[in-house]
Simulated scan of single mutants.
Amino acid sequence: MSEWRIYQAVSEPHDGIDRLPAPPPWRDFEHEGEVTPFDRQSGDGGGRRLPRADAYRAEGRTIEAVNTALYLRRPLLVTGDPGVGKSTLAYAVARELKLGPVLRWPVNSKTTLRDGLYRYDSLGRLEEAGVAHHQRKGKGTGARTDLGRYVRLGPLGTALAPYMLPRVLLIDEIDKSDIDLANDLLDALEEGMFEIPELARVADRLRSVRVRPADDGEPVTVERGMVRCRTFPFVILTSNGEREFPPAFLRRCIRLRLSSLNDIEQLRPIVQAHLAGAADDSEEVIRRFLEHASTGELATDQLLNAVYLMTRTGGEGAPPLDRLATLVFQHLNVTVPTDS
């Protein structure tokens, strides 16, 4: 295997990330300060996505795109139809390179940049301040408020914390966002840092504050209200290609388009990973799936649903495979009558 490939798309996790060379000078975020540890062995944070990440086998151009993003410390913008493995790629990289839980940030039309950076519980802070004031008034003393209790980093904010190794951040379905979010992301992704104003305002008397990360790992130390990364995270942004992005955003990304899964050899390991034991009898279901996919858009989840149902069709009155295909393999880009 080429030494150039940090991510190799292999089944066994390894320490290849330790071979990642120093970044280009314009993407070097190294600085002095406390390092935040994270548990590389804690898995992939995948939950239900773990089986698919386990079976994910990237093609050559995908491997090249991932490694290019790792070397250049740039986000990877992945486009393609639903179900082709855009999100799964993030979990596969995290699993293989042992980069801990994936930090997932699902995006919708109401998502703002601050949602990804941090949350501040202002009401809880005011309530505790009122209690402390009452205690001081009545007794002359009062406990000092721990401001860090009211701040929690979001997925993007956690990814930009001062870790020695890159965290994996999945910004899912960015094309569903408000049109301004891509531009708003530019500064944080370009500079590798951001300010928490609520902490910056008290930096003269409270220099360091420990706050909770999105994954509930080790607390992150924030100095003078600034969160600064030490190494740029591995960022995957997924898009179904529903709209275009501004040129300033695109030129800062490595771009990859994933093709639809259209081969039995690609689909069989996915079925096996999710439904062990069912794959041996699923060849006909996969063929039906591919036939339907040739005439309209389908997602891999629909195949898994059909294989699962097939394993439950031994009982009396169960529908035949033809009927199951009609029920489950309904194209995503057309309206299919439900009574057909």
Rank of each mutant, 00 (worst) to 15 (best):
P269W: 05
I254G: 04
A293H: 04
V10M: 13
E297P: 02
D15Q: 09
Y308D: 10
A92G: 06
L72R: 01
A306S: 03
D339C: 02
G241R: 00
S109H: 15
G315I: 02
L160H: 06
A200C: 12
T338R: 13
R167K: 15
D184P: 02
M193R: 15
S260Q: 13
L147I: 10
A69D: 09
V222W: 02
Y71A: 05
L113D: 02
D18E: 15
G16Q: 14
M193K: 15
P319N: 08
Y150H: 15
I236Y: 00
R125L: 15
A129L: 07
D175H: 08
E297S: 05
P197H: 14
D178C: 13
T158M: 09
E59C: 07
P21G: 08
S122L: 13
R251I: 00
L103D: 11
D28K: 01
G140V: 11
R210S: 12
G83A: 00
D175V: 15
N262R: 09
T158R: 05
S87V: 08
D54N: 14
H274R: 11
V220C: 04
D216W: 07
E128W: 09
A143P: 14
D18G: 00
E265Q: 14
V10P: 00
G124N: 05
I174D: 04
S177W: 10
V10K: 15
P166H: 04
A161N: 01
R252C: 06
T221W: 00
T62G: 10
D54C: 07
I270C: 00
I17R: 10
A9V: 00
T238L: 12
V227F: 07
L327H: 14
R40H: 14
P219T: 05
A325R: 09
L97F: 01
G317V: 06
Y308G: 06
A9P: 00
I174M: 14
G142H: 07
K176A: 11
G192A: 10
S282F: 00
R73K: 03
R268L: 01
R228N: 01
E195Q: 11
F194E: 11
A278R: 05
F232V: 04
